[in-house]
Design a protein around this nucleic acid. Structure first.
Lengths: 225, 225
DNA sequence: TTCCATGATTAACAATAAGTTTACACAAAA
DNA sequence: TTTTGTGTAAACTTATTGTTAATCATGGAA
């Protein structure tokens, strides 16, 4: 199973700091994106849907705390990891940070090693906890909440529809034979007609309003972007 | 359904520090236990099975890192939260701490506020739930007083109804299967008919006068907004 | 081009799950 | 003992979900 690289968005107005962080995290195999101020951070976050966002508290346009507060109101970023960068002395704001829904904070001056360890630890923790929510592009599929989020709006799927989507999306790009789909979603002992899958595929496509399920004629279906 | 207070074990050889931490965390409603060195920490951890362990890195007998390493080999402590206390300058060891499987670290000198926030944040993150009143939007659910408050007015629920609501509300958004609900609220050994849950759900909905329990057909129920 | 195979589409229907109401047993309170 | 409140069951209704079958579109092979 391919595991796509985790994406990290760094937002800080000091280019030097950004560069140091970027360099060190990239070395660990993360995909790094950057932003220079609060507004850009929000914009890029929506664009990229990163797995983790590192926010400097003191930034032009919007402070890190404001960015965090805003993002947390969006369903898409409910579970996104957020880490604050804060001046060591600035105790108040980092408390506010944690209250706001940040997952961690790191004090300046930043030690690259510390930051990397902290980031790794966060991802490790997340993997243990949920490990199940699928994120592909602007789509999130959460089997715990039984919810699909497309571009910030929730889509309600019926049980079979959800299971079908979840199966396909669990290995994006891979083609699932009709047989496979049947036995995975319907089980081996139930016998259903040929058109049943088609109909469900159709409903999913319709509800998502996205062309993300591709037909491979004579073979099966696959989930793609 | 009783929710026991979270138990925290503090291990540090400096009595002053232990006392400060103990005082501040106890004030938050946690149950605090203490140990003076590495060996005692392990011993008491096994005895108490705490929810969170705060380990000073520099301790007699065994260092915090060693204690952590040992505990992580035990299945019982696989998911126990572990936080290190470390001297600010001591960067190496706290990196080692995170690598060892700690969930967080706090630098000395310790600010009580910071520590408390951090501990709260950890528990929130893990969602082991604070044994406290649940507040979701304009609803408050107090398992101690056995009272539900909706928009400033008290709603009286029967025992099973309350337990059911509390379970669902403890993880808003998450879907609980009928099975789960049965075993959590009714227990595994009681066998009740299929419609029993429905009836109770109905009563809760009715009494709350709010549409906050969503049905996911074929799957279960969830608490939302 | 024509034909055939494979899906897509749609509406109708069947199966399933949940909502509702009523009734009843049982325990605690009056 | 009577009353009241709580929890469960049963019978019935309603809504949603899943399946089928009939028909239409499309692309590739002959």
């Amino acid at each position: 199973m391919e595991i796509p690289a985790k994406r990290i968005l760094i937002a800080d107005d000091e280019p030097d700091i950004v560069e140091i962080i970027q360099y060190n995290l990239a070395k660990e195999g993360y995909e790094i994106y950057t932003a220079k101020d609060g507004n850009e951070a929000i914009e890029r976050a929506k664009q990229l849907n990163p797995d983790l966002i590192i926010l400097d508290i003191m930034m032009p346009k919007k402070t890190g705390v404001e960015v965090c507060q805003y993002l947390r109101t969006q369903p898409l970023f409910q579970d996104t990891l957020i880490v604050f960068l804060t001046a060591l002395s600035d105790e108040t704001s980092h408390i506010k940070g944690l209250e706001t829904g940040a997952d961690d904070y790191v004090s300046k001056p930043i030690s690259p090693k510390v930051l990397v360890s902290r980031v790794n630890a966060l991802f490790r923790r997340i993997n243990k906890e949920e490990g199940k929510t699928l994120k592909i592009g602007n789509i999130q599929i959460d089997p715990v909440k039984f919810v699909v989020i497309v571009d910030d709006s929730e889509v309600v799927l019926a049980k079979k529809e959800f299971e079908l989507l979840y199966l396909l999306a669990s290995k994006p790009g891979r083609v699932f034979l009709r047989n496979e789909i049947l036995s995975q979603v319907w089980g081996t002992d139930v016998i259903v007609g040929d058109r049943t899958i088609d109909v469900h595929i159709r409903k999913v496509r319709q509800k998502l309003g996205l062309d993300c399920i591709t037909t491979v004629k004579g073979v099966g279906y696959k989930f793609e972007l």
